[in-house]
Design a protein around this nucleic acid. Sequence first.
DNA 1: ATTAGGG
DNA 2: CCCTAAT
Length: 667
Amino acid sequence: MKGTYIGHIWFYQYYFSGVMEDGPLTLDDGTTDVQHLLVEPQDEHVSMDNVLCFNEKIPENAMKMEEVSCSFVGPNYGVAQEGGVVLKQEVLDVMPGEVEAGYFQLPNDFCSMGEDYFSGIEFAQSITNLDYGLSEGLHMSLSESPIRGSSSDANTPWKSDLAITDVTECQDDRDNFRNSELSDTCIRQECETSIEEKPLKFPTPSTIQNISELQNIPSDSPRGISSDEDGGSLFPSDFTSGELFCSSKIQENKEFGLMGQNAESNGSDGQDELAKISNLANTDSLTKQKRSRKPTRRYIDELAEPISRHSKKKQEVSISIPIAKSLVVKNREKCYIESKTRISPEESSVIAIQVPFGSLVHKECQKSRPSDMVLSSDNENSVDKLEDICVAAVSQKKRCGYVNAACEKKRDGRDGFVIAVNQKKGDDSVTAVSQKKRDDHVTAVSQKKRDDCVTALSHRKREDHVTPVCQKKRDDRVTAVSSRKRDGHVSAVNQKKRDGRDTAVSEKKRDDCDSATSQKKRDERVTAVRRPEVSSRRKHHILWTISEVKKLIDGVSQYGVGRWSRIKKLLFSTSPHRTSVDLKDKWRNLLKASGIHEQGTRQGEKKRNMAWRPLPKPILRRVCELATIYPYPNGRKPKIIHRVPPDRSTDITLSDYKRILRSINGN
DNA sequence: ATTAGGG
DNA sequence: CCCTAAT
């Protein structure tokens, strides 16, 4: 439930954008969500996902896609299948286990599809192209194509591979996690494959174009195609340095290898049409496949991991964002491989670099809370909440203007992603699943803290779930990364300002959580980064929404002034971020705003009040009424009375002044 | 733990 | 909002 606030905002935006409507939201699967999250970071990937999703939704396209994916998936038992499955999952929520069924069915579809299938293949190719364009690192996979060709006798296998690749692309993000499982194998293969891959280039520029069209990644696609060798076109020359590249390639290779095997097994399916696709297609597909997968992951990781790391090794920090992305992806892999070994050095550098980044990380915790809050608030009145959220969002934006601005770029693509993330968060927080960990870590902490911790924990869990395979590395890296990403994106987005108080309070908790959650390396990194950030950033004020103000007023009218704790309990139980003190302060502010005790002072003051008092008149009116009934400080009625005497003196002066004026005027 | 109040 | 003091 919690973490809603942000989530709502995002949702709101999301709906408006209409991009992800069905996809992310519908996804129940935590894994899927995660994938989305991961994917989002990459604009390209995101767009792809969206496209794919749409396609799926669209009857025709969807049919093709599914069929293709299935057919392809079938062959690639491991990777491809996963990809295909993932897609289905997104749409249908199909579980992994179910995938098999889909897999089996696919062959039928494939056969029945026949020529249609072929068209589907085109689609796949286009997709592949997209992938290709998207997955910068994929070009590496090309090397595999030859391998496959040799290994897989018939074209069909290739076809399947291609199809798989396409599917995979769509799912790349999602697959990435899964890929992680494969990662072990991939890693092994990486070294071998990576070398071979480079030499191979993708033969089909046309496909690339198609891809670019689909993905809207004009620059990237060309680059990807032409640059298989270059790899670097996207990446700075420095960047291309073997390690990163290798890492990405390795993953791809792994996948590829898996794919290839699968494809071979599938070979029996071999449709004539598929055969048409021929080696080229195969190579392309292979290449694409490889790329797509790894890139995704890396990309995600990368997001999580600031460019700083990259900069470390490569000085590429200054690289443009797109480039940075690609780099990030590659780097990510590299990091992935190297992570353990290098971590210490990277971290040191990272930390230094991350300083800015760190702030984002720090936000993570904050974010989680805001989201939670939001959720809670949402519960109340959807409409009101929406408005509130909007308002809050707006206000937040203002406040966090700089942050938002920074995030805006990615934001579009990410919105969907973010939403998904939020959902996840919410789910996690709410879900019993996460509780275990949470309890373990957080249990001791009070609920408030717990929420914060929970969010943090949930993140971790999520990661864990998503990346079951490479847990060690992944956990360290991914968690850190994901958290970062999240922080960066979400926090930036949310940036809402979590109550200063909460943040302050949570700080300790947070630390605890962090430490508890990842006592691993993360502590060193994140904590180090985070704590400072936290200290610097805390103090986020959550905007009071009109609905909240209304509730407060109702509470005051019901329980009278001064019963803040009661009002809090009864009316604000859902909004953990509003404490009794907050209520009190807010009431105080409302009184000021209402001008009740304003004493009819000068116009200047009134105007000034008006300026900072956007409250609706009815609300102000109610406040005034209540104020009269319940003078603010409980016993303060007298105060009002007190007010009179002072006024009198003041009045006298004024009257005198007026008289003087009159006299003057009269004269 | 709550509340009032100042900063 | 934050923090403190008083209760």
